Amino acid sequence: MISHRLARVVFETEDAELFAVKRPGAWPSYQDYDVEIKTGLSNLPEWELEVVSRNSNKRTEPLHEASTRSHTQERSSSDIFKTILLVVIVGSLAWFYKAIQPPPTGTVGSTGGASVTSSRIKLRDRRHLAYKEFGFPRDEAKFKIIYIHGFDSCMLDSPFPQFLSQALVEELRIYTVSFDRPGYGESDPDPNRSPRSIALDIEELADGLGLGPNFYVVGLSMGGEITWTCLMKSFQGSKHTRLFGRCNSYSSVR
């Protein structure tokens, strides 16, 4: 009571003799606390003792319980509000931290695959096709060539960077692009892969790079089958007009 700095304290009891610590024979154990009780009461600015009946105390119990419930509910509402506020703040900080982070490095295929280091385009079915460019800038090139690798190779095995000199590339303005076929290198796999589906991938690659209506397609080894499929597709109104490459068995790609 002293620590709460109460200005006036009223003690209610059913028997005033309980506080008669000096009364002989009454509550002898209180005599040991005589000095302590008097000291404590002397520190209160104002206090008094009132004798009340048991019925009066019973009437005050509901008020006390109601007050207790009210304080409990207030504390509960306050705790809920603090919890919600804390969750909102933590969530906002987490979102902000994630927003300022650089985009994660892509991976090949499913989650946990190797990191992607090459340029890729996104295809119609959300797969990605990796590609590598070489030669004259494609916007200014005169000859544009798409290279299709064979069975046991990838886009890095294009022969053009090895056999075309820089002088010839600049003189003829030659641009080449090779790509990893689906499931090879850094291109996503295609469960429904076929020579025709890869031809469609090539068409999307050409459109995505803005190669225009005139370019060449060169296929090596098994890449020749895909070249032949591109040739047959060009007869059906495709933008591909000039196609070159050798193929193993063009009868199997119809």
Rank of each mutant, 00 (worst) to 15 (best):
M155R: 07
I148P: 01
R254E: 15
L85K: 15
E204Q: 02
Y30E: 11
S251C: 09
D188A: 05
P24W: 08
V90Y: 07
S92I: 04
G223M: 05
Y184G: 05
G185M: 01
S119E: 06
A130S: 10
G245R: 07
F143W: 05
V35H: 05
I89D: 12
K22G: 10
S42R: 15
R23T: 04
N192P: 05
R8E: 11
I37K: 04
S194P: 02
S110M: 02
R254A: 15
I100A: 03
G40I: 03
S92T: 10
V21K: 00
Q166K: 15
A20F: 06
P189L: 00
A26D: 12
Y184W: 13
I80W: 09
V9N: 04
K98R: 09
S119D: 06
L205W: 00
E46N: 09
R23F: 03
L209H: 07
A16M: 12
H149G: 08
I121C: 00
N57W: 07
V87T: 15
S249F: 10
V217L: 10
S29K: 13
S92W: 11
D152A: 12
I100K: 09
D34P: 04
F160H: 01
H128Q: 09
I80E: 04
T68I: 12
Q162F: 11
R173N: 01
L200Q: 13
I37M: 04
D152I: 10
N214C: 08
R8M: 14
I148S: 04
E170D: 15
G185A: 08
G183P: 04
A141K: 02
V9T: 08
F235E: 15
S238M: 04
Q162H: 11
R8Y: 14
L63W: 06
T117K: 08
D188C: 02
E203K: 12
E50R: 03
S77D: 14
S187K: 01
T241Y: 13
Y175G: 00
G210R: 02
T13C: 13
A206D: 00
W27F: 09
T107E: 13
S115A: 13
R75G: 07
P102W: 08
L85R: 15
M1H: 14
V87E: 14
P213G: 06
P24D: 14
E48W: 08
P45H: 12
G208P: 00
